[in-house]
Write a protein that binds this DNA or RNA. Sequence first.
DNA 1: CTTTTTATAGTCGTACTGACTATTACTCGT
DNA 2: ACGAGTAATAGTCAGTACGACTATAAAAAG
Lengths: 247, 247
Amino acid sequence: MRARGGLAPEDNDKYAFEPFAVTVDLAVLTVRAGELEVLLVERGQEPYAGRWALPGGFVLPKESAETAARRVLAVETGIPDLSRLHLEQLRTYSEPDRDPRMRVVSVAFAALLPDPPEPHGGGDAAQARWLPYGSVGPLAFDHVRILADAHERVGAKLEYTCLATSFCPPEFTLGELQRVYETVWGAVLDRPNFRRKVLATPGFVAPVPGAARLTGGRGKPAALYRAGGATALQPPLLRPPSEGRPS
Amino acid sequence: MRARGGLAPEDNDKYAFEPFAVTVDLAVLTVRAGELEVLLVERGQEPYAGRWALPGGFVLPKESAETAARRVLAVETGIPDLSRLHLEQLRTYSEPDRDPRMRVVSVAFAALLPDPPEPHGGGDAAQARWLPYGSVGPLAFDHVRILADAHERVGAKLEYTCLATSFCPPEFTLGELQRVYETVWGAVLDRPNFRRKVLATPGFVAPVPGAARLTGGRGKPAALYRAGGATALQPPLLRPPSEGRPS
DNA sequence: CTTTTTATAGTCGTACTGACTATTACTCGT
DNA sequence: ACGAGTAATAGTCAGTACGACTATAAAAAG
């Protein structure tokens, strides 16, 4: 490569760059029945044929990575309603050997979907499925690491943002909200304290005014809430201390 | 583009992808004399000739983005000692029109350097300089946004990590450490409270054992400290509440 | 109608923080 | 030599938040 002399990359007359393939990979998480689940697709071709992988695809010439992520999710998994999808850039994985065949730089996203809809593979023989987070085996490429990074990021964001409501349907009980925290964190929280904290945070949740009660099964019916306008949680709602969590 | 059928991007036999240029851009921050400064280079060519821009460059075929970032910083600014550089991936900017000439996807990094060394432009006519953060005018491309994102990220990380020591020389006083916080946050902190908080956090700082005093000017000499082993700050050290800060 | 289950209400002690005041140990100007 | 100024360090005090509880209410299941 020619010496570039302290200029921004776009300066080089000769455009002495190596073209890369740019893709997006999505770690889509949901909570169903108190379990954390991941949306995976089965690979039909080598390498890693038969392995599960994160949904992903190429970024098209006129797309941003964010646009590509939404398109890929719609096309590959056939999920119809992406209006309540929370999509957030995670980081970019660019190790030279992450794809054995060619140079692929992948912009990874963490995504959350409430009320997990049933996916269907988008065309060929590939299938798309929700799999429990704890039971994913080895994935294709570096997708295990991407998935772990996404899990860690989401867990951390639950602490200091109101993101948890993105896992919930439009109206939810505080018990459901608490189960989101417990499922993502893999920890048990004290119910009265959780309740006190959520209700004391202005704008986290807002009570549904009307006949604001609903019963799903046993026990006393719970009041219904919607997501409030707030996005930040101040002070944060910290997960109980545990070992082996990266800082 | 051919229908891809729910497979990972690498599956397509025809490799129906558009090649992109992949670059890195670096927002390198430092604190000097109580002021936040950014490392910028002056562009010599169109577009944005004469404008200041973040240092950046192409990712080479056998490099990861992280490797490229370190190389670019060494080559473009001639800074000799990068051993104490804190480098952290910020996010990837991929809007299709961010470079008027071609499709460029840029992986942006936030970086911190203590004891700002004098940079020298790396070859051509370009110059590299530290400029006060508050006085940067319009930058080339979307670099203003990248810089603002880096600033916000660093400010947020000061709250819940021990990152502030990355702005300090190997041995520093608590006053210097406090000035890092005040400079990045643009806020004034109470000295006794700051001191109490820092010393109460195990592993944040460790006193220098020997003749642990040094005087830089007026006032009572301060004890010297080194960075401790901890990386996380628990509970966090929150910036004083202010308006207009994104969540 | 008792047990089980879940939601809700409230208590108590500790830890942390913001807002202070006081004291010590230097330098500088005169 | 001495007082003013400056910065570091020590400590107080009240309010808030949080962890660990106990207690009560309202439903379903047996």
